[in-house]
Amino acid sequence: MSKNNLNYSYMDFLSKVIVGIHEVSTITNIPVRKLRYWEEKGIIQAVDPTAKSRQFNLANIKKIILVQELLDDGYSLDGAARKVEDRIAKLDSLMSLIEI
């Protein structure tokens, strides 16, 4: 099995596990109100933005945790979001090059 297939499976898994916003708040220790604000700013995306109840996949939960860590280190919200997006893009690019 190539790393591309392994990476696809991992990314597929991250996108398929769905968690409600209140559970995300509990997992990340970030208030629901803040999560909703981050969604309004486009930093995270709900699985179905038109749904009454917000739900997020594991990929977004990872992003939430990384953004919060950078905020704790003194980054602005916009700066933290940019840094996380850049990091994700670099990792995705690297994973697409690696094969067993």
Rank of each mutant, 00 (worst) to 15 (best):
residue 72 D to T: 05
residue 72 D to L: 05
residue 75 Y to S: 01
residue 87 R to C: 04
residue 53 S to P: 07
residue 82 R to L: 12
residue 86 D to P: 02
residue 71 L to V: 04
residue 44 I to L: 06
residue 71 L to R: 06
residue 75 Y to T: 02
residue 43 I to L: 11
residue 72 D to A: 07
residue 46 A to I: 09
residue 64 I to M: 12
residue 71 L to G: 04
residue 61 I to L: 07
residue 46 A to H: 08
residue 87 R to D: 02
residue 65 I to M: 10
residue 69 E to F: 03
residue 51 A to P: 11
residue 58 L to N: 10
residue 56 F to M: 11
residue 78 D to Q: 14
residue 60 N to Y: 08
residue 80 A to M: 01
residue 62 K to C: 12
residue 68 Q to D: 13
residue 71 L to E: 06
residue 82 R to V: 11
residue 69 E to W: 01
residue 73 D to I: 03
residue 81 A to E: 01
residue 50 T to D: 09
residue 84 V to T: 03
residue 68 Q to T: 07
residue 75 Y to V: 02
residue 49 P to H: 09
residue 47 V to S: 09
residue 60 N to T: 12
residue 44 I to V: 15
residue 65 I to G: 00
residue 58 L to V: 11
residue 61 I to F: 09
residue 58 L to K: 12
residue 43 I to T: 05
residue 51 A to G: 06
residue 51 A to I: 05
residue 75 Y to F: 13
residue 49 P to E: 12
residue 69 E to Q: 14
residue 81 A to V: 02
residue 47 V to D: 08
residue 62 K to H: 13
residue 80 A to T: 03
residue 44 I to H: 08
residue 66 L to K: 15
residue 55 Q to V: 15
residue 54 R to P: 05
residue 64 I to E: 02
residue 87 R to E: 02
residue 62 K to D: 15
residue 42 G to L: 04
residue 56 F to K: 10
residue 62 K to Y: 13
residue 75 Y to W: 05
residue 71 L to S: 05
residue 57 N to Q: 07
residue 56 F to L: 09
residue 86 D to W: 00
residue 46 A to M: 08
residue 47 V to E: 10
residue 85 E to V: 13
residue 45 Q to D: 13
residue 87 R to F: 13
residue 53 S to Y: 13
residue 85 E to N: 12
residue 66 L to W: 02
residue 82 R to T: 14
residue 42 G to H: 06
residue 64 I to K: 02
residue 76 S to M: 07
residue 69 E to M: 11
residue 78 D to H: 14
residue 81 A to F: 00
residue 52 K to Q: 14
residue 82 R to I: 11
residue 72 D to F: 02
residue 86 D to R: 03
residue 51 A to R: 05
residue 45 Q to N: 14
residue 85 E to W: 03
residue 71 L to C: 06
residue 70 L to T: 00
residue 74 G to R: 02
residue 52 K to V: 09
residue 73 D to N: 09
residue 80 A to K: 00
residue 42 G to V: 04
residue 61 I to A: 05
residue 79 G to N: 06
residue 45 Q to A: 13
residue 84 V to A: 00
residue 52 K to D: 14
residue 78 D to W: 08
residue 43 I to Y: 15
residue 61 I to C: 08
residue 90 K to S: 01
residue 83 K to V: 10
residue 58 L to I: 11
residue 59 A to R: 15
residue 63 K to P: 02
residue 90 K to E: 05
residue 55 Q to R: 14
residue 53 S to D: 14
residue 85 E to T: 13
residue 75 Y to G: 00
residue 44 I to S: 05
residue 74 G to Q: 03
residue 80 A to F: 01
residue 72 D to V: 03
residue 60 N to P: 07
